[in-house]
Write a protein that binds this DNA or RNA. Structure first.
Length: 422
DNA sequence: TCTGGGGTCCTAGGACCC
DNA sequence: TCTGGGGTCCTAGGACCC
């Protein structure tokens, strides 16, 4: 029987802020999404005040002000770096692991029979907190879906106190009974009402539900989910992450943008970020999609338009991609609209050596690549955007740039922002 | 006034081919 | 009057995840 341990950081972004700001302990804290839009991480104290996941900041402002909730803009360089530290610590405890997201990892504990798994998990929790400052919870089970459920209870139940082992089938059904169906991994906001309206309200109900019903609604994924709930594993540990199959970059604007020039500057910046990601994983893009949109929350209908181009020769060259992107943007830009967002999606990625060359290509591609390598090197050392293209507009003169009114310092990734200890 | 961003997988259906 | 069958490939859209 395989054994999976799902390790999940508690209120991860908030915990990262607390590491460098210990006076936040015990206080309500939230971290906002990009552009200071929504609450995407909440301390337990903030949850207790009724602040929901993904709630717009302007809606919760009264609660924030009345209770002295500490607010942070999201600081992804910091969270990314803290995540790496947590993952490195976890790697010491298992022969194989899958980094599932910025704050979660599946550990393969198959064959750790001689060990008391719950004790071992507590040791992991202790070590991660000691070495990184981040508190974690652990759920253990023979399938990933059950490990997710175990983790959720480990986090919530005072009795479990951060660790729950469901490898023995004895308490499994009890755990499933205590798990609302919408909390099951793979049941989202569409499927949940479908099942609850048919009397399938808990994970246990879902496990026992007629398989034809689940299969009819969810196809192959429903079959797998029911099997996983019974303890038969269908999803293996993916310990060798493949390259991304697509790369996208988009941001909401601080205030709506109306001119082509500003829209085009923002797009150029996002394309250059995306091209960096491509080069980082040594991919070249074949299909480039550009889109624009206006607000979804206004009385007039939202305008959304996108256009895709197939490049004659796949590329990861920033200026070349900007040129293509601008051409696409021209085709979908309509004046008189208040744009709130633009973005680029790179799809059909190929690797070096698979690039299909255009017979009539006149570009010196190896020279191009050397230039990009040099630029990436300089930016890695001097800070991103140290070298950029004029097409992005000048730093300090990009009024569309997202709001970040509550940002903490990049404590661990920028020499100029190290912590001062007095 | 103010509502995030980046991914994956799956399927249906159309285009096209023999 | 009456017009096949079986593939593949691609795309758009829908669902989910964090």
């Amino acid at each position: 029987m395989p054994v999976f341990a799902l390790v999940d950081c508690n209120n991860f972004y908030v915990s990262c802020e607390r590491v460098f700001n210990p006076e936040l302990a015990g206080k309500p804290v939230i971290v906002l999404s990009n552009n200071d839009g929504c609450a995407v991480a909440r301390s337990n104290e903030a949850k207790a005040l009724g602040i929901g996941m993904g709630q717009p900041f302007f809606q919760i402002k009264p609660i924030v002000e009345a209770n002295g909730v500490r607010v942070f803009s999201s600081n992804y360089p910091l969270y990314g770096d803290m995540s790496n530290r947590v993952m490195q610590t976890l790697a010491q405890f298992t022969p194989a692991m899958e980094v599932y997201s910025i704050d979660e990892a599946f550990l393969d504990l198959t064959g750790f029979k001689s060990t008391n798994l719950a004790d071992y998990a507590r040791e992991i929790c202790y070590t991660v907190t000691r070495d990184t400052g981040i508190p974690v919870s652990i759920g253990i089970a023979p399938t990933k879906t059950l490990a997710k459920i175990a983790n959720r209870i480990a986090k919530k139940s005072p009795k479990a106190d951060g660790v729950l082992d469901l490898t023995s089938s004895r308490y499994r059904d009890l755990a499933l009974e205590r798990t609302p169906v919408q909390e099951v991994w793979g049941i989202g906001r569409r499927l949940a009402p479908f099942f609850t309206s048919r009397g399938i309200k808990t994970a246990l109900d879902l496990k026992l539900a007629p398989s034809w019903l689940v299969q009819q609604k969810m196809e192959i994924n429903g079959v797998r989910m029911q099997k996983e709930l019974t303890g038969e594993h269908c999803y293996p540990l993916e310990d060798n992450p493949a390259r991304r199959k697509s790369v996208s970059v988009s941001r909401s604007f601080r205030t709506p943008v109306t001119t082509f020039d500003e829209l085009s500057q923002a797009l150029a910046l996002y394309i250059s970020r995306g091209a960096e990601k491509l080069r980082h994983q040594e991919s070249f893009v074949e299909n480039i999609t550009v889109y624009v949109m206006t607000s979804r929350f206004k009385s007039q209908p939202c305008y959304y338009n996108s256009k895709t181009a197939v490049l004659p020769t796949s590329s990861s060259d920033t200026p070349e991609l900007i040129k293509h992107g601008k051409k696409l943007l021209k085709q979908i830009f309509q004046s008189g609209k208040e744009y709130t967002k633009t973005g680029v999606i790179f799809s059909n990625l190929v690797q070096d050596g698979q690039v299909q060359f255009d017979l009539f290509d006149t570009v010196n591609r190896s020279k191009q690549q050397k230039l990009m390598q040099a630029m990436d090197k300089i930016n890695a050392r001097m800070g991103s955007q140290y070298l950029g293209y004029a097409a992005m507009g000048l730093p300090g003169r990009q009024p569309w740039k997202a709001a970040c009114n509550h940002c903490s310092p990049a404590y661990t990734t920028d020499w100029n922002q190290l912590m001062n200890v007095r």
